[in-house]
Simulated assay, not measured.
Amino acid sequence: MFDLVKPHYKRVWKINPCVSGHMFGVNWPVLARTIVTGKPYPIKCLIIWVGNPAVWAPNTNMVYQALSSPNLELTVVIDRWMNPSCTFADYVLPAQTKSLERPYVATFEDFHPGVTIWERAIEPLGERKDEYWIFRELARRLLPEDKWRDAFPWETLEEADNARLEPLGLTIEEAKDLYVISTWTPRSYEQIDPETGRPRGFATPTGRAELWVTIFKQLGREPLPYYIEPYESPVTQPELAKEYPLILTTGGRFRPQFHSELRQWGMGMREQHPDPLVEIHPETARELGIAEGEWVWIETKRGRILMKAKISSAIHPKVVNAEASWWYPELPGDKHWWYGNWISNTNVLTPDELETLDPYTGSWQNRALLCKVYRAVGLTPFMQYPTQR
């Protein structure tokens, strides 16, 4: 896919496309199985940076197998705090926090007609480094000089960010008070390419915004969008739906936490949202004998997790919405406790078998799963605010 997109992207924008986990990365289910089986080839080293796949990746059981696999001879985690992805790491490198310890210049992965600029608030704490420095130093040690200097021509992240702002005639210092710089007109595809004298167009083989996707056709895929029922739903698996009658969504977002961040006590964030919540319609809760704030089990055929019930009439009676990315920094981080990653992490419930994945993107089903919910009888929760500091 990347090789097919690259020439058209470079033709329009004069740079290579952004290779991020949201676009051209290998999907996690394939990577995890390759680590565990060594097929089609062995993977010996894993570098994880500010991602925490132990929490966000599907099928937590397979994630555990992959991260703890003896096939990995070296695992390095780059992050801002210890988390479940660090448990099996050989090295954990402390990363700087964007806009706190390092500046931040972003265009939302090149898909937004604007740039966001945040200045650094404080000097980096301890030995924390930004990711640019870490990967530049790694490249400097592993590659011939012409190669690593071509990949990392700037000495520092700040120099790289200033180079990105240079076409605007600005530096970070000059742009920091603007916060967001947007340009909505003229539309980029209408701009005249000085090399051709014609409109720039889109970064596609036809130069147009494609509904009939020519690259999909080249890959032997259906070029037009079409609908298929989820792999696991009351329609596709009616027998399973008899045992698991509710439809589960596992991607619930909430403030002030973001993804798996800010779960630590003492920062002011966990205090505002201390427990994982699952939304249940009042009628459904009444039928199940569940009251507001009670701990409940959410179960699929892959496992079960604990959350507190949040009664809400905003949700359909047949649907429950579970908050994503829960783990417990206050619990031990050894291979048994694993920071409580088994207790309330919704990915304990999600599938990742290769036949269940989207054939175009490799993404997995984390919504419209089949589940059942019932009271956690006799349970005394221990995930509470620490009374002794």
Rank of each mutant, 00 (worst) to 15 (best):
F2G: 10
D3H: 10
P7L: 07
H8I: 07
R11T: 10
I15T: 13
P17D: 06
S20Q: 08
W28F: 14
L31C: 07
A32F: 06
A32S: 13
R33G: 05
R33A: 09
R33S: 14
G38I: 04
G38E: 05
Y41A: 15
P42F: 03
V50C: 10
V50K: 11
G51Y: 07
P53G: 03
W56I: 13
A57G: 05
P58S: 11
Y64I: 00
Q65M: 04
A66V: 00
L74R: 08
V76P: 01
I78V: 15
W81V: 14
T87A: 02
T97L: 09
T97I: 10
T107M: 09
F108M: 11
F111T: 14
W118D: 11
W118M: 13
E123Y: 09
E123S: 14
G126K: 03
E131T: 14
Y132T: 03
Y132D: 05
R136V: 02
L142H: 09
E145M: 09
R149I: 06
A151T: 07
E159P: 02
A163C: 07
L165E: 03
L170E: 08
E173Q: 13
K176L: 08
L178R: 14
Y179G: 05
Y179C: 11
I181L: 15
I181D: 07
T185A: 15
S188A: 12
I192L: 12
D193T: 10
D193E: 09
P194W: 09
P194M: 09
P194H: 09
R198Y: 11
G201R: 06
G201F: 05
P205L: 12
T206Y: 08
E210R: 05
E210I: 08
L211C: 10
V213C: 13
T214G: 07
K217A: 15
P223V: 07
P223I: 03
Y226F: 15
Y227S: 11
I228S: 11
I228E: 15
P230D: 04
Y231F: 15
E232T: 05
V235A: 14
V235C: 03
L240N: 01
Y244V: 07
L246V: 03
I247R: 06
T250M: 08
T250E: 01
G251S: 14
R255K: 13
F258V: 11
L262G: 03
L262S: 11
M267Q: 12
P276F: 03
I280K: 01
H281N: 14
E283A: 09
I290C: 03
A291M: 11
E292M: 10
V296F: 07
V296T: 00
W297L: 08
I305W: 00
M307F: 10
K308V: 05
K310L: 09
S312V: 04
S312A: 13
I315M: 02
H316I: 08
V320G: 00
V320K: 02
E323P: 03
S325V: 03
Y328D: 04
G333S: 12
H336T: 04
H336I: 04
H336L: 06
N347G: 06
D352N: 12
D352C: 11
E353I: 06
T361F: 12
N366H: 14
K372F: 05
A376N: 06
M383A: 12
Y385D: 10
